[in-house]
């Protein structure tokens, strides 16, 4: 299955626009998408995810929909977010650091699985291999959103390519996740087209396919386990009904049970022989006593 973990949503997005994007991405072959909302500060009060419930007639096929929040922060500690509260609301969390310090912190300490950057901007810092590789080995994935480049002007495109190649160089293509960030239906592209585009920019074809398939899948599954599993480590995948105990005893390997039966039979037979002998002896004794 192919994933596109970034379909941006904001309160100004209408349902029909969103539905357009989703139906197109379903027909292009994506199996699961994540609606993404961008948070610059912690949401006030207890509330659920803001995404609309999409009503559609059953003839249109939609991908599986996940909820994601991207936290934008500038100061390295990101002190204005409380992660546990957000974890309860959203399926996936991502961060968008805006400064070098914040980026380092996101790579090395922050407990979110995705680092997503606006690559069309001049970031003001380079992607250095050390923190990037540390992030990848920690399980954090970098996101490249191709439709940023499609929608940008020539300058933004150049900046995007510079940043993307820099990121690919720093991580050697490992742990890179590809998603669209498509603000309308026209900036979604078919998976093969996207893979080719990133191949031109230096991410190999194999890695590109991984970036659409197994990498985002691992993110989704890990996040799911974190939320539903026991201490974020063990997940109950499927609970079988308690088996009826009698059947299980009977259902044990047939040969051994047969052997046991035989033994028991033999034992019983011996006992009866012994008993009959004893009985004979007893009766003989009784006869002699009578005589």
């Amino acid at each position: 299955m192919l994933y596109d973990l970034n379909i941006p949503w904001s309160p100004s997005t209408t349902d029909s626009q969103l539905l357009q994007t989703l139906t197109l991405s379903a027909s292009l072959g994506y199996g699961a998408v994540a609606l993404n909302t961008t948070l610059t500060q912690a949401p006030s009060g207890q509330q659920g995810a803001p995404f609309p419930k999409l009503s559609h007639d059953s003839s249109t096929k939609l991908p599986r929909i996940l909820h994601r929040a991207t936290l934008v922060f500038d100061d390295p500690a990101a002190s204005n977010f409380s992660l546990p509260a957000l974890v309860r609301i959203y399926d996936i969390l991502a961060v968008r650091p805006l400064s070098d310090k914040a980026f380092q912190n996101a790579c090395l300490t922050f407990d979110t699985p995705i680092i997503s950057m606006d690559l069309t901007q001049n970031l003001g810092f380079y992607f250095r291999p050390k923190p990037c590789m540390a992030a990848v080995s920690r399980g954090v994935r970098f996101e490249i959103c191709y439709s940023q480049a499609l929608a940008a002007d020539a300058r933004g495109r150049a900046q995007f390519i510079a940043n993307a190649t820099g990121l690919i160089r720093a991580t050697r293509g490992r742990g890179i996740m590809i998603s669209s960030e498509a603000r309308n239906a026209l900036t979604v592209r078919a998976p093969a087209d996207v893979v080719n585009l990133l191949d031109v920019w230096g991410l190999g074809r194999e890695k590109g396919m991984e970036g659409l398939g197994s990498v985002p899948r691992s993110v989704v599954v890990n996040e799911g386990v974190k939320r539903t599993g026991f201490r974020g480590v063990v997940d109950v995948v499927q609970a079988l009904d308690a088996p009826p105990t009698k059947e299980k005893k009977e259902g044990q390997p047939g040969q051994s049970s047969n052997k046991k039966d035989k033994k028991q039979k033999r034992k019983n037979g011996e006992e009866t022989q012994n008993q009959s002998k004893k009985m004979k002896l007893v009766s003989r004794d009784a006869d002699t006593a009578k005589k």
């Binding site: 349902d15 029909s16 626009q17 539905l19 357009q20 139906t23 197109l24 027909s27 096929k61 239906a185």
Partner: peptide, 20 residues
């Protein structure tokens, strides 16, 4: 490929596949 119709604006009588 053409993007799917705006479902609110027009009558979405045509199936998606045909629109695309």
């Amino acid at each position: 490929i053409y993007p799917p119709e705006d479902s609110r604006a027009g009558n979405s009588s045509k199936p998606n596949l045909i629109v695309q």
